[in-house]
Design a protein around this nucleic acid. Sequence first.
DNA 1: TTGACGATTCTATTTTTCTCGAAATATAGA
DNA 2: TCTATATTTCGAGAAAAATAGAATCGTCAA
Lengths: 117, 117
Amino acid sequence: MQQDDAIGALGALAHASRLEVFRLLVRAGPSGMAAGEIARALGSLPNTLSTNLGILSAAGLVSSRRDGRSIVYAARYESMRDLLAFLMEDCCAGNPEICAPLTQTPQPACAGEGGAC
Amino acid sequence: MQQDDAIGALGALAHASRLEVFRLLVRAGPSGMAAGEIARALGSLPNTLSTNLGILSAAGLVSSRRDGRSIVYAARYESMRDLLAFLMEDCCAGNPEICAPLTQTPQPACAGEGGAC
DNA sequence: TTGACGATTCTATTTTTCTCGAAATATAGA
DNA sequence: TCTATATTTCGAGAAAAATAGAATCGTCAA
């Protein structure tokens, strides 16, 4: 991942509605959600949501596929992983001993679910 | 970390100069760098850099302390860890089996240094 | 106190981003 | 084909962010 890609992804997520959309899609899992479903879930206007989905898509954070009349969006976990790797890479490059705790901190949401994180 | 904090941090990093500053400070380590040093290293104007350092500071991503005539900035690793945890928390909440690979992917910069990441 | 230096703040201009109404496109079913 | 549904695209106005010159503030040393 290059700096421009990281800026695109960070900028796409640095927006209340888009961050909500992304988190919703992350929770929705690989099956994704139709644009209309997302709009109803978050109470957003269809055209505004479409613009924001376009920005998330351009940043590579979500994928889309047509299903009949609907267009189904899903989070791209790979790009999220790349973004985290990019940020951590910088951290590790200079100070591996400081970076280490970043990934070893237990995640609250996962602490009781087998410790996958 | 709340959504507003995450948006602040993401927005602060979603800017070419600020991301460079942050990465530079991450590489510089806990001893940090004076504002003037940063300006010389990145070729930025003092006043523009000061504005950007202020934004990074307001987002909690860097700390500052005066040292004589200089003001020394340093990356706040804790806030970076919080941001990553916030993003991962969302991921894990719905799909721990998908989230797992995020933290288990070896980091290129650390692969040969003991695998701390 | 004076001068030099390091950094920030003020201010105005430019640029970018956000939002939403209206119109357009694509699909499905009668 | 006609109609309804789902979504996107267009366009304009409003809001926010970025930039840089000029002025200001704090510190140090003579």
